[in-house]
Write a protein that binds this DNA or RNA. Structure first.
Lengths: 343, 343
DNA sequence: GTGAAAGCGCTAACAT
DNA sequence: ATGTTAGCGCTTTCAC
């Protein structure tokens, strides 16, 4: 079994009677190499089917050319779509991606950061776990000059770049819509208020009430669940047994909305006739269920691409490391059957 | 801004007045190092917060400690769940993972293999694009002694390890179920027969007909779609307008089943009263739609873990490279409302 | 059981 | 514009 060794820059140098450093420079488009030799070198490289050894280059420059990504659940449609965007940009720029799932558990997230730092990633992109209250683990990365960028969810206490949605505004508009459809008593299924996105969405909802002059205390109820289908189902079921039936259930994600729908159907409560339901984040199923679910579509793929472009700019020092920006992407309300009372 | 350099094996060696090669050996648990020195070295390593530089080790051993994964769509629940399994095992064994999406396009897949070979991955795990008819691109990897392992879908022409489902048997059982429920005329929504899994599922269905003595030609119709919701919806709609309404629609994935349900609902055909519907591969939505969808649950996470364990055994030469095995995982039929005619 | 020495393939400071 | 040289941090063969 004959294994012919791969071509190196030395082979190219030898073949052209040049020095390997010139070859290296030529292949990296260094300005101080005459275009004539550059051409010669590149031609020879192609001829010998030269494949650069990134391991060697990375060792030398002590860059891993790898970025770490930490997300709650890879198999959630929103997140896997973000990953697609991250992978696309990263690959295109010659970076690898390490994906870690936190399962929305703070401890797992801490471990992942630890592991990523050990693998010497050049940067970390994260959407932190719902329950996170402290961010020392991320601060540690920043202390080592590893950029940490957020998407969707973020830590307010860290001054770093984030790509987020215009959640407050969108949540407000969605609430406007429910009020227009005649809803007064609204039950919100929320996640932990410590998480930026849920807090923002609730602020939007309250703003909608305020500007429409509806009494928040009287008409708005907020139920904290962990925004999963089953717990939301149980919570709504319990609510319906003990408290007044609301005019609308406003879930802060689609998963929870599915649970609410299940509970309502079980009690034979008409949707949207008696109770309207809206969700957030447009799971692909949402248009397929009965009734199809009004929700908010978030540009996940774009988000992944954008946050990756931004972190790579910082990693490659094309942008100052002390610059932190907040990019806000527009999301879009999709009105479907579950909230369409008035035809 | 003071950046203290990371500890290396030389630092440890110096601190203990030993040679760096001994340190290297000790940390790798080489047998020919006295356990006393091993202990000393490990203690010192911990004390100095030594973090091995994998880049250096990988360069030296010319292993990238990276495996490439090629899947059709990362945001499909089945695949992202497989990825979760792959990542878990890989990370645990110190490997990184590069994920590529083929979008079910052969050309993209070819490009991905090319890119993975350039990144010098140690192995490739793939579920090939639906339409693939040739596998020269994968053969090329094998020629370079890069193991290529399949999961779910596979190329029959390549002799290599694969982890697949017992699709034929399961498809047969699901068909048995439909026949038991009284279905006679069955319309199958299939993908390209060139793909192993669809061919196998159809064989299973035919087997069910055969053993129950029902005439295949008379009662079984097969409609090729690309197994996406919208095209399936259109195909079924057209079918219902021109041909006889079947007793059951048997879609070879859930996406297509959703399309069929949409078309049936539009024509106000009762499910399962007039037409039963079954799918395949248990999208998380399937239990949430109305009616909830009978389908087949595939152990995706387990599949990802298993195929990764297997390829790592081969990469680390704990198993002969000429050994190719076929591991078959059991999938499970989940009967829900859409096919429950008889109470 | 431990040490010496070479080298994986590349880059970059310095020299010319 | 090109060459010289050193070295990134590790593994591994060969000595002893």
């Amino acid at each position: 079994m004959e294994i012919k060794k791969a071509t190196t820059i030395h082979d190219i140098a030898r073949a052209l009677d040049l020095n390997s450093s010139t070859v290296s420079r030529a292949l990296n488009d260094h300005p101080r190499v005459s275009s004539k030799t550059k051409e010669k070198i590149k031609a020879k490289a192609k001829e010998l089917d030269y494949q650069p050894n990134h391991l060697a280059a990375n060792l030398r420059t002590s860059k891993s050319k790898t970025i770490g990504v930490i997300i709650p659940h890879i198999s959630r449609y929103f997140f896997s779509t973000v990953i697609a965007g991250i992978e696309d940009i990263a690959q295109q720029q010659g970076y690898n991606v390490i994906i870690c799932q936190s399962k929305d558990e703070t401890q797992k997230e801490i471990n992942s950061v630890e592991a990523l730092l050990k693998s010497r990633v050049d940067g970390i992109i994260i959407s932190p776990a719902m329950q996170d209250r402290e961010f020392d683990h991320l601060q540690k990365a920043l202390d080592q000059h590893i950029p940490v960028f957020f998407f969707d969810r973020y830590a307010e206490s860290l001054e770093t770049t984030k790509v987020i949605m215009d959640d407050l505004k969108t949540a407000e508009k969605l609430c406007d819509h429910l009020l227009e459809q005649g809803a007064r008593k609204i039950l919100v299924l929320s996640g932990p208020e410590s998480a930026s996105i849920y807090r923002n969405r609730i602020l939007g909802i309250k703003e909608s009430f305020r500007k429409n002059d509806y009494d928040i205390n009287e008409h708005l109820s907020i139920l904290n669940t962990d925004l999963k289908t089953e717990p939301a189902y149980l919570a709504v079921k319990k609510w319906l047994e003990k408290k007044a039936v609301p005019d609308a259930i406003y879930a802060l994600n689609d998963m929870a909305a599915f649970g609410a729908i299940k509970a309502l159907k079980e009690k034979r409560i008409q949707i949207p006739g008696e109770v309207m339901v809206v969700g957030f984040s447009n799971e692909p199923v949402s248009e397929l269920i009965t009734p199809s679910l009004t929700t908010v579509n978030q540009p996940a793929y774009e988000m992944g691409k954008l946050v990756t472009r931004k972190i790579l700019l910082q990693i490659e020092e094309k942008v100052a490391s002390y610059l932190s920006e907040t990019a806000i992407l527009k999301s879009e309300i999709i009105i479907r059957e579950s909230s369409r009372k008035v035809k």
